[in-house]
Structure formats: structure tokens, C-alpha cells
Simulated assay, not measured.
Amino acid sequence: MSRVVVTGRIPDAAIEKLRAEHEVDAWEGPETITREELLRRVAGADAIVSLLTERVDAELLDAAGPQLKVVANVAVGYDNIDVPVCTERGIVATNTPGVLTEATADIAFGLILMATRRLGEGERLIRSGQAWKWGMFFLLGSGLQGKTLGIVGMGGIGQATARRAKAFGMDIVYQSRSEIDPTIAAELDARRVDLDELLSVSDVVSLHCPYGPATYHLIGAEQLAAMKNSAFLVNTTRGPIVDEAALATALREGAIAGAGLDVYEQEPRVHPGLLELDNVALLPHLGSATVETRTAMAVLAAENALAVLRGERPLSQIS
């Protein structure tokens, strides 16, 4: 039997799969595992099932030892993993694409509605106990019908978000490294444009591109200034794609109308300038947070790890 280290709490269905074939050391503490404890536990591991809160780098791989065969990330994004170092050492790295597409698209569109219809402001007003009454101009928001949604990164989640937008009567433009399938483009009536045009024509910009050096602060002061002052920005991918300080300034000065964020540059810290503003909806990284989705993610990660330990190709390999 091989030794599998799980770096955080994951659904029982995945743990049971792993334990059916191997020895499992799973972190079950209420808090995130400390770096010191993580380095101690991974010693001698043949497989690591990691969460996005853990940094998988040369230090961790050294602590695990040369017998380590696979790092199975329970996330679609893998910016927490030093993939080139894994590849150099012959360690397979995997992720969990596909299974969180619909849940994350739900959150993206939920944030679009929260931002454009000022739902967060309304909810906070009720809870504050302040007096209020209905009026023709009370908490007026913006409708979506006939408006343009610009999607940056037209992969599975971007396409799922576009389908929701289409049902609301929105027009779709997108920026992506490559053209999407013509059948899907026709279904969505989606037009590919460059980022500059997307920012200038969109009433809502929704970010779905992967995070890496090329997309760090992809949306900064210059890009926010290029958007309509009536437009909204939504980010459900990775926090560092947006320059939070620039976003706070743009929101405060009215360069854009509002924003909805599920991810942040330095999670769990949120830029204090954003916390002061009513025109931004803030969620605590809930994109994949459904029972069904988190279970499917963990099970896929477990299946990836098991496949490599059997000498088979995993279902979703990064390197």
C-alpha cells in the first residue's frame, strides 16, 4: 500500500475511495494546516491530495521525498502548484476541471445580479434596522436585458456564464486565446473581440481566465478607465487578476458603476478600500461551494491520485 497525504478536510466519499486502496493521512483539524505541520506530514508520501490553500513548491516536494509520484489538486486552478518543478522531478500534477463549471457560473451570475440590482445594499439596509419606504427612485439598479456581457476567458465556466446571460437577454462578446467551437459560438451568438474592445463595449465584464504571470493585474487602472462608467466588473477566477487598489479607486471615483468579487489578491484579506464601499458585492470564495460540487471535486482528485499510483494516466493531468 502507498501512503497518501490529504492536506485539508475533504468530503468522506473521496477519503473512502483512497482508503480502499492505500494508507491515508488526512488533516482533519478545524483550521488550515500550518506549513510546519504540512512539511512534517508529507514526509514519505507517495501521493499528495492538496487544497488551493497549500503551496506546493520545491520545499514541499523535498520534504515529501523522491518516492512522491503525484500531487492531486482539489481545484480547477493550480496557481498554488509549481508545475515546472513537478515536471522536472517527474511528479504528475492534476486538477479538477469540469465538475465545478455550473456552480461557479451560478456564483458569477449571482454576483452580476447583486451588483447591477444593488441586492447587497438592500439586504444590508434591512439588517441595519434603518427606516425605509418604497419610492420611485429608491435603490435603483440597472437591468440586464439588451445589455452586453463581456467574458474574459471563454472556457467551460465562461461559456456556462454566457448561457445564463443569454437567458436574461444579454448580448455576448468574449476575449480568449482561441476561437470557441463554432457551434457554441452560434448557440450563444457570441462574438470574439480583443480585450480593449471588450472593455469599451461591455456593460458587465466577467473574468474567467486562468491566473498566471500573463494575467497578473490584467485588470488595472488603465483597463478600468477604458470601461463605461455605467459598467460592472465581476471576478470569480483568481484575485490577483484584478488590481484591488485600482478597483477601489475606480469604484470610489465613479469610473465604473460597481463590482462583484468572489476572490481576492491576498485571501482571506480584502483590500480595506473595498470594504468601505456600497457599490461592490463581496463573497468569501464560494464559487464551487455546493455539496455536490465539492464532493465531485474531491472524488475526481482522489481518482486522479489513485490512477497514478496504479501506473495509469489520470483523468485530468496538468503535467
Rank of each mutant, 00 (worst) to 15 (best):
V5E: 08
T7L: 12
G8N: 15
P11N: 14
P11E: 13
D12I: 12
A20M: 06
A20G: 15
E23F: 01
V24D: 03
G29T: 09
T32A: 08
T34N: 00
E36P: 06
L39M: 12
V42F: 03
V42H: 04
V42N: 03
A47P: 01
V49P: 00
V49W: 02
L51H: 05
T53N: 13
E54Q: 14
V56A: 08
A58K: 13
A58W: 03
E59C: 03
A63Y: 02
V70F: 07
A72S: 15
N73A: 07
N80L: 08
D82S: 07
E88P: 00
G90A: 09
G90C: 11
I91S: 01
I91Y: 00
V92M: 13
A93Y: 05
N95M: 08
N95T: 10
T96Q: 12
T101M: 04
E102A: 14
A105Y: 02
A105H: 08
I107V: 15
F109N: 10
L111C: 04
M114K: 04
G122D: 07
G122F: 06
R127P: 04
R127A: 14
A131S: 09
W134Q: 07
G135R: 10
M136I: 08
G141C: 05
G141N: 09
G141D: 07
G143H: 07
Q145Y: 10
K147G: 01
T148M: 08
T148W: 04
L149P: 00
G150D: 11
I151S: 12
M154G: 11
T161Q: 05
T161I: 06
A165V: 14
A167W: 04
M170T: 04
D171V: 07
I180G: 09
T183H: 06
E187N: 07
E187A: 04
L188Q: 03
D189V: 02
R191M: 05
R191T: 14
R191C: 01
D194F: 01
L195C: 10
D196V: 10
L198H: 07
S200H: 06
V201Y: 01
V204I: 13
V204S: 11
V204T: 11
V204M: 08
L207C: 04
P213V: 11
H217A: 03
H217N: 13
L218N: 01
I219S: 02
A221T: 12
A221Y: 00
L224F: 04
A226E: 10
A226N: 10
K228Q: 15
K228G: 06
A231Y: 02
A231M: 12
A231L: 11
F232G: 12
F232V: 14
F232L: 13
L233Q: 07
N235T: 08
I241S: 07
D243V: 09
E244C: 00
R252C: 06
A255V: 15
A255Q: 15
G258C: 08
L261K: 01
L261R: 05
Q266S: 12
V270Q: 02
H271V: 00
P272A: 10
L274T: 00
L274H: 01
L275D: 00
L277K: 05
N279S: 06
V280W: 02
A281R: 00
L282R: 05
L282D: 03
L283I: 00
P284C: 11
S288R: 01
S288E: 03
S288D: 04
S288V: 06
T293I: 12
L300A: 04
A301F: 06
E303A: 11
V308I: 13
R310S: 09
E312D: 15
S316M: 11
S319G: 15
